[in-house]
Design a protein around this nucleic acid. Structure first.
Lengths: 203, 203
DNA sequence: ATAAGTACAGTACATTTGTACCATATGTAA
DNA sequence: TTACATATGGTACAAATGTACTGTACTTAT
């Protein structure tokens, strides 16, 4: 119709080698790319172009599937937090198998801290929730899940205390190259868990 | 000399109403403005223009006193962390006056968490240290200071455990509008500090 | 008082970014 | 096969931003 546009840098739609129609797959690729990139580069540096490149799609697709960058960010954060959900499940499995002891908790924390991506995810989720309260439930989900998991054996107070220690250790691992030594974590838990955790009763 | 420049939007240096020469004061104003703004808007949104506006100086001054934005950021972060240093001093005063007890520690943490600026400072420092390892000592200073302070009475293991709880509570306060209830913090500390802290000896 | 040097304000400009837009390729129904 | 609809790639463009630059006001030494 109207050809009154400029096209300073060339005309649009010239070559176009590939590009099957696949809206759902497209969207998934974009979300997955965003979920990968957030822990890598941080939310602050997440751009349409970066996500498009990682997803292997054109810039235009990022605006087609997400009204604005904020929506893309949120979708990426949600997808990203799935990894925390998986970690939650593996923690539950371990604690059910080994019981809730300083040793089993130490193993779990140390394993978490050694996966730098999980640490980065936790931090970026916290930062995001700080900027947008809508994301608070997502950011609290992991911690609340652990509290629920530990409460039956440790009671709600100590359960929350253990989660605070986990989050503190996460902050430490985010700042420092090496996380706190596993042996120190074990000593902390062995010393601070009252009565060294009776098999099922309480104090 | 060469007047080959464009000046599309006007000629530079036209009116200039005020502007005493005061290099040192200028620099201080800029650093102070940056230190104020970082907890307010976050490092990601700290720009030359924003700092200049807050400091009440021209854009040009920001580039005159700092080779690049990163230097301005670092100067602001360093100045900002002075508030944590002051908090460290007040904590030391309290613990020396009241002794290291679950109650005195609870008071101190609750007071910290209620000062949202301190929480924001801790978080931004952590984020910054994650992006630039040069800032790690700055980010670790507060936690290490508390550990040193608590170690004589609690031993190094529990001292680090208490600091992890503090950092965990800081993360929680960063995400949620209201920090953890003081009573819960007190219960956590009262339960998890072994033997409820004998006046000076160890277990 | 005057000249030289420095600080300052106010631009200018290249780059990056979010987002809108369009021509074409792909898919679907007749 | 031919219309029609939609997805895709490739821009276009305005706003924001880091930083360089320039003319002028202020300061200081003579």
């Amino acid at each position: 119709m109207n050809t009154e546009r400029h096209f300073e840098h060339g005309t649009p739609g010239e070559v176009v080698p590939s590009g099957r129609h696949d809206p759902e797959g497209r969207r998934r690729q974009l979300v997955r790319a965003a979920a990968e990139l957030i822990p890598e580069v941080g939310l602050a540096k997440l751009t349409h172009r970066l996500v498009a490149q990682r997803a292997g799609v054109s810039l235009g697709s990022t605006t087609r599937y997400f009204a604005n960058l904020d929506e893309l960010r949120k979708a990426g954060l949600t997808e990203m937090s799935e990894l925390l959900e998986e970690d939650l499940a593996s923690t539950r499995a371990r604690l059910e198998a080994e019981g809730v002891t300083p040793e089993s908790l130490t193993e779990d924390i140390a394993e978490f801290l050694d996966q730098h991506e999980l640490v980065r995810i936790s931090i970026e989720l916290m930062v995001a929730a700080n900027a947008d309260p809508v994301l608070r439930p997502l950011a609290n989900h992991w911690a609340d899940g652990i509290v629920d998991m530990l409460t039956p054996t440790l009671g709600p107070v100590v359960a929350r205390g253990v989660v605070l220690i986990m989050d503190g250790a996460t902050m430490h691992a985010s700042v420092n190259e090496a996380p706190l030594p596993k042996e120190l974590l074990r000593e902390i838990l062995a010393t601070m868990l009252p009565v060294a955790v009776p098999p099922s009763g309480e104090a």
